[in-house]
C-alpha cells in the first residue's frame, strides 16, 4: 500500500514534469486562440470553460470560426467529428498502453485527457502508462490552456500582430519536439515522418486536393500514410512474439 502511494506520487510528479513545458506552450497558443474566440463573441469565462473542457487546438479554432459565421449546429457537430477524428485513433492507441486490470473509469478518464501533446507524452511513457501520470500532465496543461484562452479574449488585441504570429509557432515547435526524437531511435518512424511532410505539402499545394479543408487533409493523410507504413514496416512487439 505504502509503495503504491509512493509510486503514485512519483507518477504525479513525473506527469507535472512533462506537463509544465506543455502548459507553457499551451498558454501561448491558447492566447492566440482567445483572440479568435473574442471575435466569435465569447467572454473570458466562456473561453475558460470551453477551452478547459474541449482542449483541441484545431477543433476549437474551427468551432470559433463557425460560431463567428453563425453556422448551423449540425455543421459544428460534423466539423468537430472530422477535425478531431485523430483523437479516435489516439484513444485506440492509448488503450494499448494501459495496464490490464485498470478500472473502466480510469480508462475512460484517461481517454478524456487526450490532446495531441498529452497523448504524445502518455504514449511515450515507458511500459504501461499510469493513470496518475496522464492526469497530472493533463490537468496542469488544461489549466494553462484555459487561462491562456481567457486572457487572449481579454487582452489579445493589445499585443502587436508580429508577436501573436511568433507565439503561434509554439504549437508547431511542440509537435516537432514530440515526433522528432523517436525518429532517431526508429528509422521507420523517420521514413513515415518524411513521407508525411512531403505528402502533406503536396496536398496543400496541388490543384484539386488543396480545396479540401485542413481537417480533411489531416484525417485522410493520417489513415493513408499510417496504413502504408504498417503494411510495409509492421512493428515487432514483445507481446506478439513472432506472431
Amino acid at each position: 500500500m505504502k509503495s503504491t502511494q509512493r509510486n503514485m506520487r512519483r507518477d504525479i510528479l513525473d506527469g507535472l514534469h512533462v506537463g509544465i513545458p506543455i502548459a507553457m506552450a499551451y498558454f501561448a497558443v491558447a492566447f492566440s486562440l482567445g483572440i479568435i474566440a473574442a471575435k466569435a463573441g465569447l467572454t473570458a469565462p466562456m473561453g475558460f470553460v470551453s477551452s478547459f473542457f474541449t482542449r483541441a487546438s484545431a477543433g476549437e479554432y474551427g468551432t470559433y470560426t463557425l460560431i463567428a459565421a453563425h453556422a448551423a449546429y449540425a455543421e459544428l457537430v460534423v466539423m468537430c467529428l472530422v477535425i478531431n477524428l485523430r483523437y479516435m485513433l489516439m484513444s485506440a492507441a492509448l488503450s494499448q498502453k494501459i495496464a490490464p486490470g485498470t478500472s473502466r473509469w480510469h480508462r475512460l478518464l484517461m481517454a478524456v485527457c487526450i490532446t495531441d501533446e498529452v497523448f504524445g507524452v502518455s504514449y511515450a511513457h515507458p511500459g504501461y502508462t499510469p493513470p496518475a501520470y496522464t492526469y497530472s500532465a493533463a490537468l496542469i496543461s488544461s489549466l494553462f490552456w484555459a487561462l491562456g484562452c481567457a486572457l487572449g479574449i481579454v487582452a489579445g488585441n493589445i499585443l502587436p500582430q508580429q508577436m501573436v504570429t511568433a507565439l503561434s509557432m509554439a504549437l508547431y515547435g511542440m509537435f516537432l519536439g514530440i515526433i522528432i526524437p523517436p525518429a532517431r531511435k526508429d528509422r521507420n518512424v523517420l521514413y513515415a515522418l518524411a513521407a508525411s511532410f512531403v505528402l502533406s505539402g503536396l496536398c496543400a499545394a496541388a490543384p484539386v486536393v488543396s480545396g479540401l479543408s485542413s481537417g480533411t487533409r489531416i484525417v485522410v493523410l493520417t489513415v493513408l500514410i499510417s496504413a502504408v507504413a504498417a503494411w510495409l514496416k509492421p512493428v515487432n512487439t514483445e507481446a506478439d512474439g513472432e506472431a
Binding site: M90, Q96, G120, Y172, A192, F197, G201, A230, W231, P234
Partner: peptide
C-alpha cells in the same frame, strides 16, 4: 499485427501532417 502497427504510426503521422505545411 497490422492494427497494432497502424496505431503505432498514427500519432507521428498525424502530428507531422498538422505541422507541415
Amino acid at each position: 499485427r497490422f492494427v497494432r502497427s497502424f496505431l503505432y504510426y498514427v500519432p507521428y503521422v498525424t502530428l507531422a501532417v498538422m505541422t507541415f505545411p
